[in-house]
Design a protein around this nucleic acid. Structure first.
Lengths: 210, 210
DNA sequence: TAGTCAATATAGACACCGTCAATTTAGCTA
DNA sequence: TAGCTAAATTGACGGTGTCTATATTGACTA
């Protein structure tokens, strides 16, 4: 007999997870309270402790699953990218940007180190996998530059994350790039591509904005 | 007679502000509660409402003051920077990085759009002033590129903010750049400088493809 | 000097929250 | 069927923000 459908309310752990994700999308991390999740799941406020030790554990589970989603998106994108090109920049950037704009509250939660358990080994592992994928691609397309591949990896991730974070915090109004006419996020990707040395063709492509 | 030192506990508004900043540095935004601030100020939990409408107003006041500090640092740095050079990149980046590493909890609060009042006109004004300073410098040192100056401004700010945010969230371990031997944040500044025309041959070349 | 009054501070209440402890329930198994 | 154990309930505790009614203060006025 599977773990599911065993007790009073069936697979409560799954229900709690789904409800929590729903509440997150609706009202942000602030709205994901143990009591609200229990209420929404039709269960007493003390029930969740049997499945998630505390609020931190619940939020950590949410974050873990979302990083796994992002990892999958990145892996899928890279699997169809041609080697040697710097399509990986777009793959990685759009994976984050699309996710962030589609699920702003989920994205914000990813970086709430004060609410989740950063020591969770599964969480670290998933994050490392994403980072390693990024580094692998840099290594392949940037054999030797004056920059450490980690610096390029951190630089790209930082720029994308910073842009998303500021946008999702409502800190500034997004306008299109006045030169290329592209949305700002696309212009930022082009900007970053300029840092890639061997990409004369790519650079030309990036700059050939009409 | 000034507003200060007028009632029961003297300039309570000032005391509340100072205590709140202290609590912020100690325990992050989570630790800045109306009741804790009142307790620390030796006053009843209902007293603060006379000076800050609610918690959001108190936190917004903190954020406002910190952005003003950053603006001052940027202005001072720019006042001694030679025109036409790329020094503004360092001035802007180090203003944020130094502030963030010195006061991590203050920095994190700056971007907690869910805790503060983003509509506050004084707050928007200070943020706009910082952004405009940045754009002015870009305009002066990058007369004509394929990129909108706003894209360069957003790109720099996003990269610095993203790096700081990830570092302060405890999301990754900082290592030195293996090529230059510099700390990662310094390497990121160098990375960004490559986008500026008068620095290296690579980007001058790229920009020449206009 | 006595009186007025608005600004300020207090104290209590309410509805939340997370978490803990004691208790009851449900489902499996021996 | 009896017993065992995981799961769920219930109630409590201390914390939070914010709202009320009440009391105090201090500055100005008559």
């Amino acid at each position: 007999m599977s773990k599911a459908k065993k007790f009073h309310h069936g697979d409560l752990k799954r229900v709690l997870f789904d409800v929590a994700l729903q509440l997150l999308d609706r009202g942000g991390a602030e709205g994901v309270t143990i009591r609200a999740v229990a209420r929404e799941a039709g269960v007493s406020h003390g029930a969740p402790v049997n499945h998630y030790r505390d609020r931190e554990a619940l939020l950590t589970a949410l974050v873990k699953s979302q990083f796994e989603t992002i990892l999958n998106t990145v892996e899928e994108g890279l699997s169809v990218a041609s080697a040697g090109s710097n399509v990986w920049i777009e793959v990685f950037a759009t994976a984050l940007l699309d996710f962030g704009f589609q699920y702003p509250h989920r994205y914000k939660l990813l970086w709430r180190g004060d609410l989740i358990n950063l020591q969770d080994p599964e969480l670290s592992k998933t994050m490392d996998q994403i980072y390693d994928k990024l580094c692998d691609e840099i290594e392949r397309s940037l054999p030797a530059t004056k920059f450490d591949r980690d610096t390029v990896a951190v630089g790209l991730w930082a720029m994308i994350h910073g842009y998303l974070d500021m946008r999702l915090s409502g800190m500034f109004v997004p306008l299109d790039d006045k030169v290329s006419g592209k949305p700002r996020d696309a212009a930022l990707i082009d900007l970053f591509k300029m840092l890639m040395p061997q990409a004369d063709s790519v650079k030309a492509d990036a700059l050939a904005t009409k």
